[in-house]
Write a protein that binds this DNA or RNA. Structure first.
Lengths: 309, 309
DNA sequence: GATGCTTACGATACCCGTAAAGATA
DNA sequence: TATCTTTACGGGTATCGTAAGCATC
């Protein structure tokens, strides 16, 4: 048994049992992949995969049980490597952050610029992704930190902490009649609406609020990010509902937020980490730049619950 | 990085940084051990050991942190192997039980004979050991199950379950005057005593009881097991204090237990397992033969707390 | 016929152990 | 001096990739 064999087993599942794809992802040959799987199965005396002829179809029962252990081993070895980097190059290395457009565009810029000042040698990788993709990146170990409002709190394998709270704002062209009216869900429902895609930036909360009020709304368009939404609102296609911070500190001349108390429930952007993932020292600093009360100790306690010190 | 390197790191600590000993234990050459350590340190870019000249003295800071991860990796790989055996040879294999003399001699025989009937092909290895040694065997992965009254409950890395409760008995030669007296700590303290070694079979409870009563006692001899104690009690060297089950079902003609309510607090023999250690199916059966209410589900829950099913 | 898996085989790198030299107590 | 660690070096093995053959869709 060796690490390459374990990597291959894990990647075979991730690549839907296509060994050619596995070989490409792991930068090796298909023949080697094939042989490694055979060798491991021989050594363990168990068939890890269900086959149909030569093709692999799925994990066998023992294969399923094994996969969990394999993933733990590989998680630990990646932790070992990061731990070593932490000591060999304390303030150098890579920090990989997976986040949504909203956070990357409106919440993170000040954090990131302060972080870069503190750790100029750390290479920042910003994966922009959907909340679902972001979860996958964290679970695969391809990202150290995930930041999003959606999805992350519901995944057991992730630890997450509140980052900040925010509300949705309603925006309309500067000359729109809504600016003169008292804003309510009812009045809003009279206009065609433009807002986020399903699963993005609190969209579910918006739907729920209208549903609860028994209102049918006409969402003429949905987009991934506030910039796109603002563009189409400016064109007069409808009234926009976007995250409030997407309007702050911006001098949009064509559209304007409607001044009114929030119509939709408070949202919480969260910072998420894969349970058991070893974080470099500067990663803890990054998190503390986001939320000053999240100290390294507090995070570690949640991340590595079995550590007893 | 490979498994052999990790094994060597772990074993180096266990062998007090004597690489020659490491090589012997791992059945390889000292030169290989030396090179593997160098290679790993090079790859990680960190010195894992503190050296004085050529000799290794201790773990460095990163080495200490690394060790925990290394041990998890090796624990998981041994779990992988056992899991594979579980499927490839369901009712064959090895079950390694570490236990004290008292349990091996008086409590386990019926359990073991029933187990052997149920799993004739399983090779039973009975490590007889002191409670401290028993803990080490469990933590090293050299034993699957530990059974003892002492020590195991105090170790965080072990999960333990109550097996059965027992009391100490006072024994004396058949013609001893104590048989006619009312038994109390005071009367007992008038005689020279023979009992277990420190750290064995509830000895600490005995000391504590006399201390609490403000009594000074003359322990003329201490031994590891009840058989030895009984022998010297029969010779008239003193009054014995042994585990009650060491007198049951035995036709000792020269010594006899004194009929009286128990003088010392109740003791609990416990079944202990290393947290995270994968147990074969028959190991769960063994435990259930000891204590019928300890089902596989209940034990698994404690052993692998992170599993979410 | 296109894609995917396996076998054969040669080149390379890796791992191990012996022997000898160098450090340390 | 005895014990321990490291370096040098040779033999063996494992791993990898190319190429070709074969199965599957």
């Amino acid at each position: 048994m060796n690490f390459q064999q374990l990597r291959i087993v894990r990647e075979t599942v991730r690549q839907n049992f296509n060994l050619t794809a596995v070989a490409q992802v792991l930068f090796t040959s298909a023949s080697g992949v094939s042989k490694h799987i055979k060798d491991l199965e021989n050594e363990l005396g168990v068939e890890l995969f269900i086959r149909k002829g030569k093709r692999l179809l799925a994990l066998s029962e023992p294969g399923k049980e094994l996969l969990g252990m394999v993933e733990r081993v590989l998680l630990d070895t990646s932790n070992i490597k990061r731990l070593a980097e932490q000591y060999s190059q304390r303030d150098e290395g890579q920090l990989s952050i997976a986040t949504t457009h909203t956070q990357a565009r409106y919440a993170l810029p000040p954090v990131i610029s302060r972080f870069k000042q503190a750790f100029p040698k750390v290479q920042l990788v910003l994966h922009q992704a959907s909340p679902q993709e972001l979860v996958r990146l964290l679970l695969n170990g391809d990202a150290d930190i995930g930041i999003a409002t959606e999805a992350v709190a519901a995944v057991d394998e992730l630890v997450s902490f509140p980052y900040y709270h925010w509300h949705h704002s309603v925006i309309a062209p500067v000359d729109h009649p809504l600016h003169q009216q008292t804003l309510s869900l009812q009045t809003l429902a009279n206009y065609p609406l433009i807002t986020y895609h399903q699963g993005f930036t609190g969209r579910s909360e918006i739907d729920q609020a209208f549903n609860a009020a028994g209102l049918n709304v006409d969402i003429v368009m949905s987009a991934l990010d506030a910039d796109v939404i603002k563009t189409y609102v400016a064109l007069g296609m409808g009234v926009g509902i976007i995250a409030a911070m997407a309007m702050e500190n911006h001098h949009d001349t064509q559209v304007q937020a409607i001044k009114a108390p929030p119509l939709f429930a408070q949202q919480t952007a969260r910072i998420a980490i894969h349970r058991g993932h070893y974080l470099r020292g500067f990663a803890y600093h990054f998190i503390q730049l986001c939320a000053a009360d999240l100290s390294e100790d507090i995070i570690r306690q949640q991340l590595h619950p079995t550590e007893l010190i």
